[in-house]
């Protein structure tokens, strides 16, 4: 088990370094305006001096080395336009908690809604809950999330008579962002859980359990549900990415002072160092999510400890 964890950890670290390098190199292709507060008014000499001080005139390999060196020191650079000169680390530290809290709440909500929905759908195949759930899944999967996020904001705020924008201190304003953000994952969990439960229900061990005299209800609870849950875990990373993607919309729609809203904001202002930092942070979340999924899988599935896992899922 320990070896399994260790191998995963090393793999994730290597992946992370490569991913960050790719992102870094890509972002160097940006126009250099994004490193200045007021590029147009500056003289070439001043510009050059600043580029020099940022190390942007160095060869890319040197830049990359410097970047990782400062990253290890915990230095993410300073904002160029969003909040001039402020260290990005502290901006993010200030914004991240709301995002993390929103994301966790929404994932918790998605689980409490999606898992019972998926189980109900599998149990009533072809009947009401299945049809209702299918309709829900089709709409959520097919319609771009931006559309229903906006519609929810538009009509639900009217209907529930709650403010359209987020206020940290007002719990009522948390409802819609969390709910909207959970929809995609709810549909996702329900869809996969239903599929895996139906798959499991057709397996021989379920037939054997039936032949043993176990009731359908107990089979569903003790055998099918638990076994269907194992492959579900591999969707954990994807659902983290879903949440991250959703937060970009939701936070800017509801003016949540978090990371997602910040990203949209700094893209609008073309603040290169900020964009770089946030994009990389999201990559880290992605890699960590995958790692988490792998490790959880190892905990839940007794077969993992023995089977040598193939490289990719």
């Amino acid at each position: 088990m320990l070896r399994y964890i260790l191998r995963r950890l090393v793999g994730a670290t290597i992946t992370l370094v490569i991913v960050l390098s790719i992102v870094f190199v890509l972002l160097r292709q940006m126009p250099i305006e994004g490193y200045f507060e007021n590029y147009d008014k500056l003289s070439p000499a001043v510009i050059n001096a600043r580029l020099e001080s940022l190390g942007l005139n160095d060869p890319i390999a040197v830049q990359l080395k410097d970047f990782f060196a400062s990253l290890l020191r915990g230095d993410l650079g300073t904002s160029a336009r969003y909040r001039v000169g402020a260290p990005i680390g502290s901006i993010i530290a200030q914004k991240a908690p709301v995002s993390i809290l929103l994301g966790l709440l929404s994932m918790a909500l998605a689980m409490t809604l999606g898992i019972p929905l998926g189980a109900a759908m599998a149990r009533s195949k072809g009947k009401f809950w299945d049809k209702f759930g299918t309709l829900f899944i089709v709409i959520i999967n097919a319609v771009p999330s931006a559309v229903y996020y906006i519609l929810i904001q538009m009509y639900a705020t009217d209907l529930l008579k709650i403010p359209m924008l987020f206020e940290r201190g007002n719990p009522v304003t948390w409802i819609l962002p969390v709910f909207s953000m959970s929809l995609g994952n709810t549909a996702y969990y329900a869809m996969w859980l239903r599929r895996y439960m139906l798959d499991e229900m057709n397996k021989d061990y379920v037939k054997l359990a039936r032949a043993k005299g176990v009731s359908t209800r107990k089979i569903t609870m003790r055998h099918v549900f638990r076994n269907a849950f194992v492959p579900m875990i591999q969707y954990l990373p994807t659902s983290i990415l879903y949440t991250v993607g959703g937060s970009i919309y939701i936070e800017s729609l509801y003016s949540v002072p978090g990371m997602g809203g910040l990203l949209v904001d700094v893209i609008g202002r073309q603040d290169n160092p900020m964009v770089q930092a946030i994009v990389m942070l999201y990559c880290v979340i992605g890699v960590v999510g995958l790692l988490l999924g792998d490790l959880l899988m190892g905990v839940v599935d007794p077969r993992i400890k023995f089977a040598k896992k193939e490289g990719a899922r």
Partner: peptide, 9 residues
Amino acid sequence: DPMTSLNPL
């Protein structure tokens, strides 16, 4: 098929 008749978990 004994390979699939038992619950693997």
